[in-house]
Amino acid sequence: MSTDPATDDAFTGAAPADPVARMAEAAARAYDLAAADRLVRRPMPTLDIVNERFLRHLRVGVFQLVRRGAEIAIAPVEVQGYADFLASLAPPTNFNVVALQPLRGHGLVVCDATLISVLVDALYGGACTLQAPMEGRDFSPTEQRVIQRLLGIVCTEYNKAWKEIYPLELAHVRSETHPQFVNVAAPADKVVVTTLKIAIGDFEGSVRICLPYGALDPIRDVLYGAQQAQAMAEDRRWVTALTREIQSAEVTLVAEFAQAELTVAQLLAMKAGDFIQFDRPARVVAAVDGTPVFACHYGTHSTRYALRIDECLRGDDPHWLGGSHDR
């Protein structure tokens, strides 16, 4: 039998007698080095909602830029190493460094050459059926101006998508064509990549938004916030329910056929059997609570008085309903 206490502790598994050793053993904890990587690769429900909003806004922005329909699709969010992201890009590629205000750090908005060529063709009246060769040369001044216009739209619409969630804004810092000048993250660092495919005519190009995961770490709870994503989904259900209830609400439609002007003396002098003369207008306006809604003709239908709608009245001003309806 061994008489060494240290040897006995090793075989029996008993706690060491030294208090310092016991405290050191109690403080030791197992740490999984891959745990952080698993956290990065978890789904980000809030970012998915942001991208859905961004997609809707960008469709309108691109249409206003080229004045023709564009098919835009967004790929699922990817989390990969920064070096792997750069290696996946085929030159020539336009890199735009953007600040992530109010967060620290920078991100990238990357436009490929195919998309720039298609946009230039569309803006200058082309049919988007030919692609100008761009290998072995830098972007021309005209192409750079088109890139800046597209970048402005991307940043503006992306900021709108974040507006109700977090005040994140992309602000352009500089543009580059060589990846070695856009080190927004270390090669081994993780980045969050959102890829948009934009098809115009016969060609399709891509816009990629690359955000370093380290820069997004201060809002990690927002990105992984299932409760916030669920609240937004519930909010959309509330809007749908409210829209359905509003559409089923009953309103009173009033059509004013004519107006006659009388003095007070004429009104007081009237008696039973008198007539009020007025001119019959060609069209009448039907209103709800004083708000003009339809321009109509009036007549009879199936032996009943009826209105035939000629035009739905709308206003360019978002407050066209009037001051009493702005609330």
Rank of each mutant, 00 (worst) to 15 (best):
M270F: 03
A36P: 00
D9W: 04
Y158W: 10
A258P: 01
V40N: 05
W320L: 12
F95V: 13
L115F: 11
D289K: 13
A199I: 02
H57T: 01
E256H: 14
V192S: 06
P292G: 13
A127T: 15
V222C: 06
T195Y: 03
W320S: 14
A199D: 07
W320Y: 14
S248Q: 06
F11L: 09
V251Q: 13
D4I: 03
L253K: 08
I116E: 00
E256V: 13
Q228H: 11
I165Q: 05
T240H: 15
L119D: 00
A171W: 06
K163L: 04
A260S: 12
E204L: 11
E25T: 08
Q227D: 15
D48T: 12
K160I: 04
L65N: 07
Q64V: 02
L196W: 02
G299W: 12
Q101F: 03
L39I: 09
G315Y: 12
P5L: 04
K163M: 02
G273D: 08
H57A: 10
N51E: 11
A28G: 11
L170Y: 02
Q228D: 12
C210A: 06
F181V: 14
N94E: 06
L170N: 01
G315N: 12
Q247G: 06
A34D: 11
V154R: 02
F181N: 14
R29V: 14
Q131P: 00
V293S: 13
E52H: 13
D18W: 03
I74C: 15
G152Y: 07
Q247R: 09
R145S: 03
D217N: 09
F181Y: 15
F63G: 05
Y124C: 05
A188N: 03
K197V: 10
A35G: 04
R22M: 08
A122S: 11
V293L: 15
E176I: 08
V251D: 10
A132Y: 11
L47I: 01
V264Q: 03
T129C: 08
A127K: 15
L170A: 04
Y224C: 03
S175I: 09
R208A: 01
R280L: 13
L123G: 02
P19H: 01
P167F: 02
S248C: 06
C210V: 01
L103M: 10
G152A: 08
P218N: 02
G273A: 05
A286K: 11
G323I: 14
S324H: 14
R59G: 10
A27R: 14
L100I: 00
V154G: 00
A185S: 08
A83H: 05
T12E: 02
G13D: 08
L168T: 02
R53H: 13
L55Q: 13
R56F: 10
T142R: 06
A249H: 07
G13L: 03
N94V: 06
A269S: 06
V66R: 02
